[in-house]
Computed example of a mutant assay.
Amino acid sequence: MASTTELDHVKAVWQQMRSNSPIYDFLLSELEVVSATKGSVTSHLTLGPKQMNSSGTIHGAVSAAIVDMSGGLAICSRGLEKSGASIDIHVTYIGQAHVGETIEIESTANKVGGSMAFTTIRICKLVDGKPGPMVATASHTKYIQNIQPRSKQ
């Protein structure tokens, strides 16, 4: 029997995360995971009014939620079913994004050890289907001890 691909696995984990998290389901329900390899996940999100701040640009809390979610998905792309508990999230806000714009989220699991995982995330606007101006960069550390790898199928 063939094993599931990283993309299939990450999409399944994302659906589970959404169903267990009202905030992810509210803020990020339109997010689409577009690619995944071992340790790397790329997602797209077209921004709507619920992701905006009072100035009409992507809210910092939304960016932080994206970092939390996408860092977890990058960790899970290494074969884990869950992504653990956040220890540290650091977001650097570089640019703006507005309603109707699509952002691309690139998340990388730089190291997944026995108890800790370290990720980096880049959020940029898509322009003509290609990565354009940077919106934010981030680092995210998670505690993952006792998280079991997925079973081979």
Rank of each mutant, 00 (worst) to 15 (best):
S3E: 09
S3H: 11
V10G: 11
A12Y: 02
A12I: 04
W14A: 12
Q16Y: 10
I23E: 02
I23V: 09
Y24S: 02
L27R: 11
L27P: 06
L28K: 00
E32K: 15
V33A: 12
S35Q: 13
A36M: 12
G39Q: 04
L45H: 00
P49S: 14
P49V: 09
Q51K: 00
S54N: 08
S55E: 09
H59C: 03
A61W: 01
A61N: 06
A61T: 01
A61R: 01
V62H: 00
S63T: 09
S63K: 03
I66H: 00
V67C: 05
S70L: 11
S70Y: 00
G72V: 07
G72H: 06
C76V: 02
L80G: 05
K82Q: 14
I89Y: 08
I89A: 09
I89V: 15
E101A: 00
E101L: 04
I103K: 06
I105G: 00
A109P: 06
K111P: 01
G113E: 07
G114F: 06
G114A: 12
M116L: 15
V127L: 06
D128M: 10
P133M: 07
T137R: 11
A138Q: 04
S139H: 08
N146A: 13
I147K: 12
Q148F: 07
R150M: 12
R150V: 15
K152D: 12
